[in-house]
Computed example of a mutant assay.
Amino acid sequence: MGRKPDLNSVDVRMLARELLASDEVNISSVQTEGEETHAYRVASRERVGCLRIGRSTRGFTKDRWAHEMLGDSVPVPRIWEIGQLDEKRAFCLSEWIPGATLQDLTAAEVKQALPAVFDAWSIIASGDVENISGYGTFDPESQVAAHETWHGFLRAPADKAASWDTAWTAPRSGQLAELLDTYTVLVGRCPAERGLVHGDWGSNNLLVADGRVAAVLDWEDAAIGDPLQDVGKRFWATWPPVATCVTLQAAYCEARFGDVPGYRDRILCYDLHRGLDGIGAALADGAHTWADWAFRRCLELVQQAR
Rank of each mutant, 00 (worst) to 15 (best):
E193G: 06
F138Q: 01
D292V: 02
S122H: 06
D181R: 15
G195E: 08
G225Y: 06
R306N: 12
V42T: 08
V242K: 03
E33Q: 15
R172F: 08
V110A: 05
I79F: 07
V10Q: 14
P157W: 08
A305I: 03
Y263G: 03
V30Q: 12
V185Y: 09
M69S: 14
T182C: 15
G225V: 10
L276Q: 02
A161L: 04
T238E: 11
D63R: 01
A108C: 06
G59V: 04
L105I: 06
H151S: 12
D104I: 00
C253E: 03
A156N: 06
R172K: 05
V197R: 02
A120W: 01
L93A: 05
D104G: 09
A39E: 14
L272Q: 00
C190A: 14
G152Y: 04
H198K: 02
A192C: 03
E109I: 04
I97Q: 14
L276F: 02
T101D: 04
D181V: 10
V76W: 07
A192T: 12
S44Q: 08
F118P: 14
E95K: 01
A156Q: 13
V302S: 07
G188M: 06
A16T: 09
A161K: 00
N131R: 13
S9K: 06
A21D: 11
K111G: 08
G188N: 09
A222I: 03
K111C: 11
R256L: 08
E193S: 09
G262T: 13
